[in-house]
Design a protein around this nucleic acid. Structure first.
Lengths: 308, 308
DNA sequence: TAAAAATACTCCATAGGTATTTTAT
DNA sequence: ATAAAATACCTATGGAGTATTTTTA
């Protein structure tokens, strides 16, 4: 009598996500009629419709919303079952889907991959770069195993593992190198170049400047730290970048770096994963290795392959 | 790549429960080879065995245990999805699987069924009588929707809904009706007839008598309150019964009833259900109706169909 | 050697495809 | 009029049955 299938849930989840039978079907790798039939079957089992069919819109009913929420939980748990076997085996093998935020990835990911391939040879790292909000969503839906982001996340279902803290440094045109380092108040009056919305680094920088409104007068936006530094070099303003970005980003640019004293702004970088992930203990080991990489980077005597 | 099915989980759950491919298959309504194939498929997907096959024994591996735990969770949640639709509809309709402990069922269930069929006509009550431990297990595995038991249960995942408190009364042979009512200390020296192990009412009575050991000197056991009262009538000792059992059990018996003063032992009867059950709000309504029945029963002016 | 699980094969139910119709804006 | 979902019909995969062999205590 219980004809419910995980397939039903996957299809319904896809339908809810796309709000469109055709695209949802495509995302499942099946044809639109096949998906229609499965959804209808699900509704028949339940005795109530899950979606309202408009001519151009598909919307979830109230029941559909409630159903979706629970269905997602089940799908996540089912996905975790797959990881269970891997976690039972000694070394963490197979692929590890790791998300990394854009203001960390280019400066840290190469070293992470090098360290992991040495210390955990069986591991196949599948990195994905995106902003925090997107990474967290994927994490919660079990589309990622772990993510490296700025802490805190404060999501109760996620485990946070601190990797390291790092300061933000001031990047100015060479021509201003002789000027005193401005403080937070002064920064508010200057032409500050920051990342576009969605990047946590942007918010952290703004919060240092005590900027309440999200768009102060002299704010310009770039889509990568590299772009920002280039713009600074061209005399268009100044910016902040995290310390780990210095070697790579300032090598070719005609800019001057200054440290804020005595209170430098900073961020805490950490790794997060679902607490219920069966790989949790293995992920802790991964975290320890990654942390080691971070410590080496911060050691002033250390010189990585990015030179400097 | 994710060929996992709820069917796999159901079959594996059955196998774990029966530790026997043949019987597990039977309980699933399929043949033994069919189950073997599915289990093997599951193990192949995971890459590790879930069970150790002995010639006469099937035991779960470590991975199997871990897998089972998570699989059960998923199965419960999947079962709850079915209830979701019903809860969305206005009145609670369809069948409601209600467990009741043996020391409540015969005295309370008829009135409950009468009240519910009047107040919730669409509801088809499927009662099941068993001891508390068994009811709670079934509840947690979603094989019951709710249960009427003695509180507290103190299981975090269960919602407790208090129905009423009721006293325990002393049942003596008619010949002893003139004697003073014994207190708890005195009871320890008397020939006390109680239910066999597993019944919560037995434990509650023992705890009133401050009996530490589970089998005091003068203890005899019966399998139903009715039997106990008959034995008391035959002069074999005395017993305690809950107040609601009085009308039915003492009608035909030559026994005398006495109330303990001033501190009568008592029990709290309540209804419990899984907090995550989508029917939770509806179950609260059911609880309210059942509570009303309990209140009417306790009203001295009330006379139910059991006479008295 | 005997009970139990695995294997071999056969079959049919059903998930899914293609072609088409119906629906709603 | 048109995009989108439902329906009709057909095909093929795989779940489940029976018969049999293999395993192990």
């Amino acid at each position: 009598m219980n004809g419910l299938t995980l397939k039903h849930l996957r299809y319904f989840d896809a339908l809810a996500q796309h709000s469109h039978f055709g695209r949802a079907a495509e995302s499942c790798g099946i044809s639109q009629p096949a998906l229609s039939v499965q959804i209808k079957e699900l509704e028949t089992m339940l005795g109530s419709p899950l979606v309202e069919r408009g001519a151009r819109v598909v919307r979830l009913t109230g029941l559909g919303e409630a159903f979706l929420e629970r269905a997602k939980q089940i799908l996540v748990q089912a996905a975790e079952l797959n990881d269970l076997a891997r976690s039972a085996k000694g070394a963490l093998a197979g692929q590890l889907r790791l998300g990394v935020i854009p203001t960390v990835a280019p400066y840290f990911l190469p070293q992470i991959m090098a360290a992991l391939s040495e210390r955990m040879p069986g591991l196949e790292l599948q990195p994905r770069e995106s902003v925090t909000s997107s990474l967290i969503l994927d994490l919660l839906e079990s589309k990622l195993d772990a993510a490296i982001v700025a802490l805190p996340i404060s999501e109760p279902s996620l485990q946070e593992f601190v990797l390291f803290d790092e300061d933000f440094l001031l990047v100015r045109p060479m021509s201003e190198a002789h000027l005193p380092v401005p403080n937070a108040r002064m920064l508010q009056e200057m032409r500050l170049l920051l990342l576009e919305e969605g990047h946590c680094f942007r918010d952290q920088a703004l919060s240092f400047c005590n900027v309440a409104s999200s768009r102060p007068r002299y704010l310009m936006e770039g889509s990568s730290l590299s772009t920002l530094v280039q713009m600074v070099g061209a005399g268009m303003g100044l910016t902040l970048i995290p310390e780990m970005a210095i070697p790579l980003e300032t090598r070719m640019a005609r800019v001057s770096i200054a440290r804020f004293e005595p209170e430098a702004p900073s961020r805490r970088i950490g790794m997060v994963w679902r607490k219920t992930n069966p790989l949790a203990t293995k992920l802790m080991e991964v975290g320890a290795i990654v942390r080691r990489v971070g410590e080496r980077k911060q050691d002033p005597g250390y010189s990585d392959q990015n030179g400097r």
